[in-house]
Write a protein that binds this DNA or RNA. Structure first.
Lengths: 254, 254
DNA sequence: CGTGAGCTTGACTTGTTTCAACCAACGTGG
DNA sequence: CCACGTTGGTTGAAACAAGTCAAGCTCACG
């Protein structure tokens, strides 16, 4: 299988997103002092131009061989595995500032697909540079190990959700975790975040059918927990919604 | 929370297990040339004495703070998370030669428990030494990154199983993967492996109830796919069992 | 204006859980 | 050595959660 040729035809026109903060890899240095003083893992100036992919486009597919690892700075993407009979499981959502699952750095073949949900813009970081920086620079290693541990933590929590929680709980937890991640990055406006997911995305992420997701969301809406309008999501009653998600308010142990 | 004091009272009396091979961390060097020429990650001579824990004993619990990471060389253990209402999800089984999930190296607090299933013997590897070796020795880093990628791959596959596969498929895949791992380590006798798991372990690993696991296993037994007798498991009809597990025989893409 | 993607809703089916009873194996203390 | 409790496994009936199927709706887009 030949190495995947990533389209570099469409280069991101605009500059850095404003207000993006606390992101795993893309931090403010990358945007404001790019290439000058403190290179981010694998982000050499020569390759830091952005690539834009339209909504629904696959950025790469399972079984592709990659020599780059995408690093999102605009839009949402989904990392998923498709089974031969059409079933799909979304393993993670990539938000602005996220890097694709770093297992790619050590596998010579992707075991999952990465699909743009909205239009996305990303930087293709060279895996070879990435690995080199990792063994040379303790700071980069430290940064990378945090990302790695975080990915593993989220993968484990997904397994717990899918294995031992009901539909309401799973959907609520997904929404809460997405909102929390967006807020942390400064991508929320008050209690509201932009929310481009379709119900089938939620279904594939929670191991449910889209019909059932519709029923659960309708129930949440009628109960006054959330509001989904246009392409935005608002959590109206955080306390009650946390309770649905099995999150205790005070000092709860999950 | 104070650092966990691990019991070092009971030291493993016997020598290295015979025939254990292809294990992530504990390989033959550790046993046969221990400390002499080629130190394994974190396995300093001073700390390579073994610790024995009886069946059902917790080696550590979620929220414990650890300064060592256990590395099994005898027996089986389960890595699991318990929810406040009693639900449990087993995230992985540790077989002889496995190291505990390496997220422990970067977290200052365990997010899961490790419980002995059979009597186990393990080496407590110092996390500090582990980290130091990682940044110093490229070979150790390489070895470690393989383990890390493998853990992530298995975590992702667990999520796929729990999210998108039925009970039969999940149970069959668990048994098949366990047998494969044991065979790879040279711990099988023909088509038979020792199998100390209780049905509730299988239930907690597959997100089912032990009652349903009993029904599924009975069905497998009656169909002639497997035999569980004493504390051993034999896969009698590998082809049919693979089909149940959704594994295609020839060149299948899962 | 037609088309297709996405969402909602209701009726029905299926897979899994829950509950309960019972049995077998095993270790333990009287 | 036996009585007994504990742990683990089996089975069947009933309850329940989620899936499937189908129809109809809105909306965006050509």
């Amino acid at each position: 299988m030949a190495y995947l040729q990533l389209e570099r035809s469409s280069v991101a026109p605009e500059g850095p997103p404003s207000g993006l903060r606390d992101c795993p890899i893309i931090d403010m240095r990358l945007f404001h002092q790019r290439g000058a003083d403190d290179p981010i893992v694998g982000a050499e100036p020569s390759q830091s131009e952005g690539i834009v992919a339209p909504a629904r486009r696959f950025i790469f597919r399972q079984r592709d061989r990659l020599d780059i690892i995408p690093c999102l700075y605009r839009g949402w993407a989904a990392c998923s595995v498709a089974l031969s009979d059409g079933r799909r499981q979304i393993l993670s959502f990539l938000l602005p500032g996220d890097i694709a699952p770093t297992a790619l750095v050590f596998d010579n073949q992707a075991r999952f697909s990465l699909e743009a949900i909205t239009e996305v813009a990303y930087r293709p970081l060279r895996i070879a540079d990435f690995r080199a920086g990792l063994t040379k620079d303790p700071g980069q290693f430290e940064q990378f190990s945090k990302i790695w541990a975080d990915e593993k933590r989220r993968a484990d929590e997904l397994a717990i959700d899918l294995g031992r929680r009901g539909a309401d709980e799973r959907v609520a937890r997904l929404l809460i975790s997405l909102v929390a991640r967006l807020r942390q990055r400064g991508l929320s406006e008050g209690e509201t975040v932009t929310f481009p997911l379709r119900q089938h995305h939620i279904a594939d992420a929670t191991g449910l059918t889209s019909v059932h997701v519709s029923k659960v969301l309708t129930q949440f809406r009628r109960a006054g927990y959330i509001e989904i309008k246009g392409r935005t999501l608002t959590i109206l009653n955080q306390a009650a919604f946390n309770a649905i998600a099995g999150i205790r308010e005070f000092n709860g142990q999950r």
